[in-house]
Write a protein that binds this DNA or RNA. Sequence first.
DNA 1: ACCCAGGAAATTC
DNA 2: GAATTTCATGGG
Length: 279
Amino acid sequence: MKITETPKGVKIEDVRDLSLAETLDCGQAFRWQACSDNGFTGVVANKCVTVHLNNGILTIDGATKQDVDSLWFNYFDLELDYAKLRSEFAEIHPILKEATTYAPGIRLLCQDSWETLCSFIISQNNNIPRIKGIIERLSESFGEKICDGKYSFPSADVIAGLTVEDLAPLRSGFRAPYILDAAAKVASGEVNLQEIKKMDTDEARAQLMKIKGVGPKVADCTMLFGMHKVECFPMDVWMKRAMKELFPTLTISDFGKYGGIAQQYIFHYSRMNPNLFEK
DNA sequence: ACCCAGGAAATTC
DNA sequence: GAATTTCATGGG
């Protein structure tokens, strides 16, 4: 993949197995906004960019070549061979093959661990449009202004200094004290996300679950989307339905060491085809 | 009015 | 211990 500077940013040529719409709007990230021209604008790690993808050329306006090396190449997981992964998934089960064919451009984003943790605390017993709204209000209220109307995701240190009253405008409901507990434990170092990233899955999950409002599902989402622990297989309401109705003979371990990526194809396929579960 | 949403804590049995 | 209820909010 050739990386070159452009007047507005950077372009990466020969990008395969990526659809921006499928990847940025499949429920793993909540801060990307679709533009009118098939592009997406988002804030990642205090940087505001607009991305487009045409004919295998990924352009990132607002980024430098150095940003690609330090952030974007990894963010879009461009090192991993997804075509090979999908062909391996196809051998596991015909419906998994169907799910990978349905949205072959899904990639697992490598997101910031704190933002992911906080976002999936907000996600519990909630729907995706409202999750996005709460996260935007959180960023606009307590993040730093990056460019016109765009704000960074607030750090744990900043949120740790707030109260439930401060969070009231978010209308996050019963999740507000959970957000504060996560921020306090991360800011104090009682929960060290960088160290957790190095731990094996079970130990990491136990560490994350020390936070009030973090159970197995939120912990697994944090590890999968925010720490690239690709074997994690979060079981939400959609995945429970999918396992029961679509894969009654399989268990999580049958999906292999990249099971988390299979999970994401299945999650998206299920959510886009709710008729699969009507009877 | 009722049910559900990328769940987890609190309570009850 | 396992099953059920509650939690806050908004859309269908």
